[in-house]
């Protein structure tokens, strides 16, 4: 059979048509971009969820404090009243209340069970303090407490809050680092695939050079092809990732951190940025590889 399919005549046309469709580098690029973007969606979800968690923990604990009052049983009520009276006169305190026995029992229930005989134990009285927007002078309050109720300790949750917020922030950083690593790994793999494709098409490149093709023209043929492949794979990967995240258990009151892993509201739009980003990474990686390889092939 002599006559082949007439693709197009001569003259202008997309540069990538002059490069024959190459076998394994085609699906390798598409698969790599797809897999990497799929993973990236989860890294973005992790990063966003960690950020949310840090903000939530920080906000939830930042405005509250607890006064723990230890006193002999006969002094307990007197000192409690004294502390409550002191709090009512303290600027920066929005509200306060002493936890009753039932509430304190509930707090201890996870450790001691529901039948705790609270009345037989020397339990401290807990007073919850909520500060207003201006906040109170914690050092001043501590000194006045020491004078009014020597057994009262003000706990502003700093000891608890800092490590939690730090842990969440680190987790977020880890998510961002993962995204960068995934991007770098994708760039490396696409570079390898582009190099393989360029090497496999050395003869084609030689022909193009003989007829006067510039490096930029030859590079464009490969760059366009790899960018389109990466974009295609990334779109599939992003869609699969979004479906995967959507299938994660919904966040609930008892769900803990893992149940909160996912997107919320406009956050669902973030993964849609990944395919164009993947295409940009592929474009830059292939372009760099193409020009380097074309210099080698001189």
């Amino acid at each position: 059979m002599r006559a082949g399919a007439s693709r197009r005549g001569r003259g202008q046309g997309p540069a990538d048509e002059i490069v024959p469709p190459s076998g394994h580098t085609a699906w390798l690029t598409t698969f790599t971009a797809g897999a990497m973007v799929f993973l990236c969606v989860f890294a973005v979800a992790l990063s966003l969820a960690s950020g949310r968690l840090a903000a939530r923990w920080s906000a939830a604990l930042a405005q509250t404090a607890t006064i723990r009052l230890s006193a002999p049983p006969e002094q307990m009520q007197i000192q409690t009243d004294g502390v409550l009276s002191l709090l009512s006169e303290t600027p920066g305190v929005a509200s306060f209340r002493a936890l009753d026995d039932t509430e304190q029992r509930k707090l201890l229930e996870p450790w001691f069970g529901p039948d705790l005989p609270l009345e037989d134990l020397p339990m401290p009285r807990l007073i919850e303090v909520v500060e207003d927007a201006q906040g109170y002078d914690d050092e001043g309050l501590r000194q006045r407490l020491a004078a009014e109720a020597p057994g009262a300790v003000l706990d502003d949750h700093t000891r608890w809050r800092q490590p939690l917020v730090e842990a969440a922030s680190r987790l977020r950083l880890l998510g961002v680092l993962s995204i960068l690593l995934i991007g770098a790994a994708m760039a490396a793999m696409i570079t390898l695939a582009a190099n393989a494709s360029l090497a496999a098409n050395a003869e084609v490149i030689r022909v193009l050079r003989l007829v006067g093709a510039k490096d930029s023209y030859i590079a464009r043929a490969f760059v366009r092809r790899f960018t389109i492949r990466a974009l295609t794979g990334a779109l599939v990967g992003a869609c699969a990732g979004l479906v995967g995240v959507a299938m994660l258990p919904a966040a609930g009151p008892a769900g803990g951190f893992l149940a909160g892993l996912g997107f919320s509201g406009v956050e669902w739009l973030w993964p849609l940025l990944l395919p164009p980003l993947a295409a940009i990474v592929a474009f830059l990686a292939t372009r760099r590889a193409a020009f380097a390889k074309l210099k080698e092939l001189t």
Binding site: G9, R10, G11, Q12, I18, G212
Partner: peptide, 12 residues
């Protein structure tokens, strides 16, 4: 095809 090959100098 041959026609496209012959037109390569124009294409590039």
């Amino acid at each position: 095809p041959l026609s496209a090959n012959l037109g390569l100098p124009f294409t590039v």
